[in-house]
């Protein structure tokens, strides 16, 4: 009896130990990411400005995502138009289709899906590229040349993300609305004038601002997480070399995606 109590006691302290350790680890990691972000962010504004590198990154993260964002935007809009039409037609309010498509895209789907697509396309490669530079001592080499690796590698990527995310989101929204128009008006016969007029009437600046705030926050989170995972590839337990890079890339994508959805909820509840 007493022994059983003892072993239960051990179980409970064991659990508490685990809980405490994990919490401390998570908080420590969050702190590290926050400092990493602040340092990288501040260095964007250090002189001389790295315009050339930022433009290169804008090209890589933004321009090269153009096609995929357009494609995803188009189909998202089209399916929204399709689904929305059949729902709204039940209530006889298919005239609201334009608003339904536009608002869901601008407030929600635009920023989120853009962020997810960019994570998959650019985020993973940021993590992998910086991770490989870490394991092949290229980051140490920068350090020995007295070139700040944070400024050289991380700052331009954060800056470029801040520029490209809202722009890509805008692109996504516009093409998505056109997709909705395609199915709603051209295929299913909703009146074109009503479609656009309702959008014009109902979408207000607050909706658009909300979408942009989201995409701005996503830009910071995604670029920081992906750079951070790559930058500290060598510190992760259980994975060295190529394996370490692959783990870093995986966690960069997974953590970014999860955070985007979580933050999306939090932001939405504040913005509404």
């Amino acid at each position: 009896m007493q022994q059983e109590g003892l072993s239960n006691g051990f179980k409970i302290t064991g659990f508490l130990n685990w809980l405490g350790n994990t919490t401390l680890k998570v908080i420590g990691e969050l702190g590290a990411v926050a400092i990493f972000f602040l340092y990288g962010f501040v260095l964007i504004f250090s002189y001389p400005f790295q315009l050339r590198k930022i433009v290169q990154q804008v090209y890589f993260i933004g321009v090269k995502s153009f096609l995929i964002i357009s494609l995803i935007g188009l189909f998202t809009g089209m399916v929204l138009g399709l689904q929305g039409y059949y729902t709204l037609v039940k209530f006889g309010s298919e005239g609201m289709l334009g608003v339904a498509v536009a608002l869901s895209l601008i407030r929600e789907l635009g920023p989120v899906l853009t962020a997810l697509m960019v994570i998959g396309r650019a985020g993973s490669s940021i993590a992998a590229e910086i991770g490989i530079m870490r394991i092949s001592e290229q980051i140490d080499a920068l350090d020995t040349m007295d070139i700040n690796p944070m400024r050289f590698l991380v700052s331009p990527r954060i800056a470029a993300s801040i520029i490209t995310f809202p722009l890509l989101t805008a692109l996504f929204d516009v093409i998505g609305i056109l997709g909705g128009y395609l199915t709603g008006v051209l295929l299913l016969g909703v009146n074109s004038g009503i479609f656009f007029n309702r959008i014009y009437d109902s979408v207000v600046a607050k909706d658009i601002n909300g979408g942009f705030i989201k995409s701005f926050v996503f830009a910071l989170v995604v670029s920081t997480i992906c750079c951070y995972q790559g930058y500290f590839t060598h510190m992760r337990p259980g994975g060295f070399g190529a394996k370490g890079v692959s783990l870093a890339t995986t966690s960069a994508v997974v953590i970014s995606c999860v955070l985007v959805l979580v933050i999306d909820y939090v932001l939405t509840s504040f913005l509404l």
Binding site: I132, M133, Q138, T144
Partner: peptide, 16 residues
């Protein structure tokens, strides 16, 4: 630090 150079064992050239 600026007066130093370091030559790494595996060269650590920037591969991009």
């Amino acid at each position: 630090k600026r007066s130093l150079s370091y030559m790494f064992q595996n060269n650590a050239l920037f591969d991009s």
